[in-house]
Simulated assay, not measured.
Amino acid sequence: MIAKYKVSILISSYNYAHIIEDTFESIKNQTFNFEDIEVIFVDDHSEDNSVEVIGRLADEFDNVKLYHVPEGQKGVSYPRNIGIEKATGDYIVILDADDRLDSMFIEKTYKEITENDVDMVKTSFFMGFDKKISYSQNLGRVVVHPEDVSVLMSSYNYLEPWATMYSRKFLIDNNIRFSIVHKYYEAFLFSIECICKTNKDIILLDNYEGYYWNYKLDGLHNVDVTVEELDNTIECFTEMFTLLVANKQPINCIETFFPFALSLCGSGVYNSTASDFEKASFLCKKAFNLDYVEHDE
């Protein structure tokens, strides 16, 4: 496929009519030429007037496209995968519908990815729009070599799929997509697959917060999951470790990622809506392959 645009920005939308125009403005106001940017909205069965709002943008701008997730399919992976398939730009950026890009994000990441001939460029990010919290670890500009990606395993800051520019050809040639099997942390699995399948350096601009993440701090600690979803989560992290081992990452990379992964799985158990008995049964089965029996006092 011959690229029509330099960059495609993929936005999965679900009931974001109240904020989606602000998200779009952060794209339109880029220092990069807007006409070189393809904006792809994929609506995930919105129940508000999101489709109407996006439709008006698509009517006004030739480089704005609207697609829909088919009936019977739902979840953030479907619209992101549709966006990857529909994109015609040389490079891809994933943007959540209620987040925003810094005005220089495309210019900075495009310059890095083209001048250095790499498959991905990552930046740091802010949480919030007004009272911003920086997620930078003050590492500066880092060139991560593919034979040791330990620095990217140290925090979820670098494992989110957004705040990143990807080569579309790299994603297509390696058949990298978001998992539709895993409900939680499938975004991390996508990122680790990208990290493991590239044979080029990865540029990390940790000295630049290029992405604004619209998230409430308390929301990070209030995720209710069932026992079935806990099992799915552990399977997802197992796949991540399998990728790292298959990619022959050094032991320090695995050691860096392990406590981080363990803490997220532990948080899932702690916040699960399951009963104590269900949690105990689940942990016994997973850890020791034993059935837990509840005794009457």
Rank of each mutant, 00 (worst) to 15 (best):
L243T: 01
A58H: 02
F257A: 00
L152V: 12
R100K: 12
F170Q: 04
V53F: 01
I192P: 01
L171N: 06
E35I: 05
I180W: 13
T23K: 03
V181T: 11
V149Q: 11
P146N: 11
S281Y: 10
Y78T: 00
E25G: 03
V142M: 02
P259R: 01
Y211N: 10
H182C: 03
P250E: 03
Y292M: 08
K285T: 05
F277P: 01
L152K: 09
K131Q: 13
S8R: 11
V151C: 10
E160P: 02
I106Q: 05
D102H: 05
Q30D: 07
E278A: 15
F277W: 07
N116P: 07
H145P: 08
Y16P: 00
M120D: 02
D119I: 09
K200P: 01
A87F: 04
V121R: 07
L101R: 03
E115A: 15
L262G: 04
K248M: 14
F257V: 00
V142G: 05
E35V: 07
P161V: 04
I234N: 06
D218F: 09
T88A: 05
Y110E: 04
I195Q: 00
E193G: 01
K86P: 01
F170W: 13
V53N: 08
L152H: 08
K4L: 09
D201H: 12
N214E: 04
Y215G: 01
D43T: 08
V142A: 06
M127C: 15
D62G: 02
Y78I: 00
H182F: 15
E160R: 13
T233L: 14
H18Y: 13
N15K: 15
I192A: 04
E115K: 11
V293D: 06
M127S: 13
C253T: 13
Y135K: 15
F32A: 05
S136N: 12
M127R: 15
A97P: 01
F129P: 00
D224Q: 15
S167Q: 02
T109L: 14
D102C: 12
S267H: 12
V151A: 14
Y5E: 02
D231W: 15
C253S: 11
E294G: 07
Y110H: 11
S124C: 08
Q30C: 10
A3E: 15
H45C: 04
V51P: 01
G266E: 12
F126I: 06
A163P: 03
F105H: 04
A246S: 12
I40P: 04
L66H: 07
N199P: 02
F125N: 05
D231L: 05
K285V: 00
Y211V: 09
K65F: 11
V51M: 13
K279Q: 09
I192R: 03
V53A: 07
L159K: 00
N49R: 14
Y158Q: 05
D90F: 07
V118I: 06
N15D: 08
I203M: 11
S150V: 09
D102T: 01
E35D: 10
D96T: 00
L57E: 02
S12M: 06
L152W: 12
D99M: 10
N81P: 03
I234C: 11
D44L: 02
Y91V: 03
S179F: 03
V223N: 05
A97N: 02
D291G: 07
M1Q: 07
D62I: 03
P146G: 12
V149E: 07
T198Q: 09
I27L: 14
V69G: 10
A3Y: 12
L220W: 12
V181I: 11
T198A: 09
H145E: 08
